[in-house]
């Protein structure tokens, strides 16, 4: 207990907790919809796009985040278009878009023949190294994303359950899909900068699938996903502090432990 209080005195740990919990909740809420719609790998895919976009940003000598957010948004719409209109399966569409982005990124880095700072280090953040500026951005983003999810909860639910039926209900399915995918794009591009790729893709997938194992009801699934996500960040930061382990990887493994636990609970019921 004392060690926890001791850890809490450090500003970087406070920021890791706040930034991690907010980004984690965004990911958890979006994750439930993304996993149910077979788009769970989108976090990984868009992270690759973020890399390419960051390369372009460095190439153009601007702040990479301002290049990567619009480009990742564009790529996410492209994934949506491919899976909706071009009859490409969602997983293949994600693969296609991320492969193209990586290729473009590598060529850009190659043509540019050099940067002033290493591309990877600039793009991939660590949860321990969140700046105050990034905490504010994460909180603002979460307010927007969680607000969107609440505002369109019923629409998102109906579409996740059955897209065609949602259309029959008079729901503007295309618009809602775009909102979901754009929220994901912003979360991912900010998230990779704040907490890193590994953490962002696992925070999208894990809390959602863990909640889906045991939740009896959709509202409950959303709530549980947010709870699992928050707990994994809190426990992960403290455990990594106590046991002297890398924080990001610890959070991922705690998420995995939650998943195994919920799987066992489900089987025992």
């Amino acid at each position: 207990m004392n060690t926890i209080l001791e850890a809490l005195q450090y500003a970087f740990i406070q920021r890791a907790l706040v930034g991690g919990v907010f980004i984690g909740c965004c990911c958890a809420f979006l994750g439930v919809f993304l996993v149910l719609r077979r788009l769970s790998l989108i976090g990984d895919g868009l992270a690759h796009v973020g890399l390419a976009a960051g390369g372009l940003g460095l190439f153009l000598n601007t702040q990479p985040l301002w290049v990567s957010i619009p480009l990742v948004m564009f790529a996410s719409l492209w994934i949506l278009w491919l899976s909706d209109k071009a009859d490409v399966y969602a997983d293949a569409a994600i693969g296609l878009v991320s492969a193209v982005s990586v290729a473009v990124g590598i060529i850009l880095a190659s043509v540019g023949r050099g940067f002033n700072i290493d591309l990877f280090s600039f793009l991939f953040g660590s949860i321990l190294a969140i700046s105050m500026h990034e905490v504010i951005l994460s909180v603002a983003l979460s307010v927007i994303v969680i607000g969107m999810v609440f505002l369109f909860y019923h629409e998102l639910f109906a579409i996740a359950f059955e897209e065609e039926y949602a259309r029959v209900l008079g729901i503007p399915v295309e618009k809602i899909n775009k909102i979901l995918i754009l929220c994901t794009a912003v979360t991912v591009s900010l998230g990779i900068r704040v907490v890193g790729t590994m953490l962002i893709s696992s925070l999208i997938i894990f809390p959602a699938i863990t909640a889906l194992q045991i939740a009896r009801g959709f509202r409950l699934a959303m709530l549980l996903a947010a709870v699992f996500s928050t707990l994994s960040v809190l426990i992960g930061v403290f455990v990594s502090y106590l046991a002297d382990l890398p924080t990001g990887a610890t959070i991922v493994l705690i998420n995995f432990a939650f998943f195994v636990l919920s799987f066992i609970i489900k089987k025992m019921r």
Binding site: A16, S240, L245, T247
Partner: peptide
């Protein structure tokens, strides 16, 4: 290795 992540304990010890 630049890929390694430091642990929070090490950072606080450094501080």
């Amino acid at each position: 290795s630049p890929n390694a992540e430091p642990t929070p304990r090490k950072i606080t010890e450094m501080i």
